[in-house]
Design a protein around this nucleic acid. Structure first.
Lengths: 295, 295
DNA sequence: CCCGTTCATCAAAATTCGTGATGGGGTTTC
DNA sequence: GAAACCCCATCACGAATTTTGATGAACGGG
């Protein structure tokens, strides 16, 4: 029987795909750059096809690389699930954890309560801020581990979830038909760029009508018909009206949710929390992916 | 970052779970018994819990072992998918492949045609027989690789698919209300045991009305209202009426479809075919499994 | 045009892993 | 009930694999 693939190699491969760099990926998986380089070399030899194009400064996936990537992700996701299940309940320590407040409201209670149940001795110190500020805080060493929305800022972490973005308005409100379109969004919110870019693409006029770093405040701006908002699926709230795509608003890009860790935040309690987050809210396991042959 | 699990260990673990023996599993994964034993030891140390109970002659999964098993299977299934995708189209040779004829009708054309497309130089010599005879043929060296229904015979292979079994009758036929119940089944068909056992359990009287080693013949016996049949999901045909569970027939055990290989049939072209089969008709990837926390 | 960064490569070192032999414990057989 | 048997765990050793740190070539920004 031909031996199965090496998950360690696949992890390195995915890390490279995520951050577009061997060197950076090596940091993430706690190896030297040359180790990662050789792992990929062996992986490519094993599969008989190049997986990454090294083109000067940029590293990109080949077609085969793409096909492998989604499968490798699924495997790693399951690996996280297992790690989460078996991770030691005796671990203790504290983690400074940052998360954007829009997710905090909806997802955190569920995730953290089950985490607290399995890891009663780990203190999770949660702080809620917009993604941009979380990244800044991370640079200043204020966090051990953050969840953030990546993409428009040019920071990339361990991608583990994507979410559809929706335009939302209040039921029966006027905002949607107002010209220029009044928008409500976070001050430094990276989604704003997504929305503004999308509007520019179709040449629709708009103005920023309301700005706040507090997600609840944005939500109420929308609900009171002050403005039109743009939210990820899991931040939608009852009372909001999702605007169908055929209206004249452009489709928004999906939001990419990733984890970033401080350089010391690997192993032990940090892995426990990261695995738990990925296992319980990751959606990149490709369960709805097509069979390989169909691609 | 804590290193991911070793798929090689998981493969050995699954092999043990499948056949209930370290020694036999070792044969399957082409290792010595001691190698497998140590792999499991390392795996258990890694996860911090015993996964298998060694109790005299029998090896069984612990609760943690069960939880791991389904995840490991999913990972291995994905591994097969990848192997299938990347497997070398230049492989050549011929494979004597056996499969029960009921599956042959429905599933083989799809699977073999896509296999032929990706591996034009491999000749697959297909023979259709009931599972029992395939196993006999395998012992006599007549096959390189077979797909069979395991369970009632005490042979176990690499389990890769389970199927719901159904009682079927013809539309508007009388057979179902005849006493004793007339049955149609394969001569040495292992499903017969399943059905007979199920009927005995509820004390329902029956007689074997029709027997043939040809699945088409059985199907026509059912369709012409000669008898009631019992078929796996994928062998159901238009014109058959599936008998709902609330009628007075007992629920049948699921059929377990497995692969068995001759001892020489590992690596190269054999892996290519086995991977392809598992990747394209395996259903044990646990996509409908509950999240681990819920178990 | 130089400097900094990135990735590939190499040989040596370290680690990991499998092997074959051995032993204990349980089961079957006579 | 003893002997033969089968199964799994363990051990020391040797083999294979992997990582490392150093080095070189290619590229791009300032």
């Amino acid at each position: 029987m031909t031996a199965p693939l090496d998950l360690d190699q696949l992890q390195s491969f995915c890390a490279i795909a995520d951050c577009g760099s061997f060197t950076e990926a090596a940091r993430r998986v706690n190896k030297t750059q040359s180790a990662v380089s050789m792992q990929i070399k062996r992986l490519e030899e094993r599969l008989g096809h190049p997986l990454l194009t090294r083109d000067g400064r940029t590293v990109a996936l080949t077609e085969h690389g793409e096909a492998l990537y989604s499968r490798a992700r699924r495997m790693l996701r399951i690996n996280f699930e297992i790690m989460d299940h078996f991770s030691d309940g005796d671990l203790k320590g504290s983690i400074r954890f940052g998360v954007p407040d829009d997710y905090a409201v909806r997802l955190l209670p569920v995730i953290l309560s089950s985490f607290q149940r399995t890891h009663p001795k780990i203190v999770v110190d949660v702080r809620c801020q917009p993604s941009e500020e979380l990244l800044e805080g991370m640079k200043k060493g204020k966090y051990d581990l953050i969840v953030f929305t990546q993409g428009t800022n040019h920071e990339y972490g361990e991608l583990f979830r994507t979410e559809r973005m929706f335009w939302v308005a209040s039921h029966g409100g006027q905002a949607l038909s107002t010209e220029p379109l009044p928008l409500a969004g976070g001050l430094h919110c990276c989604w704003k760029d997504n929305a503004v870019e999308a509007l520019n693409r179709i040449g629709r006029d708009y103005r920023i009508a309301y700005t706040s770093s507090n997600a609840m405040a944005i939500a109420s701006a929308v609900l009171t018909d002050l403005a039109v908002g743009f939210l990820p699926e899991s931040a939608l709230q009852p009372g909001m009206r999702v605007i169908a795509e055929d209206r004249d608003l452009p489709r928004l890009r999906d939001a990419e949710i990733a984890i970033m860790r401080a350089s010391h935040a690997y192993g032990g309690i940090y892995d426990a929390l990261a695995s738990h987050i990925v296992a319980s809210m990751g959606n990149l396991d490709g369960r709805d992916a097509l069979p390989m042959a169909a691609e």
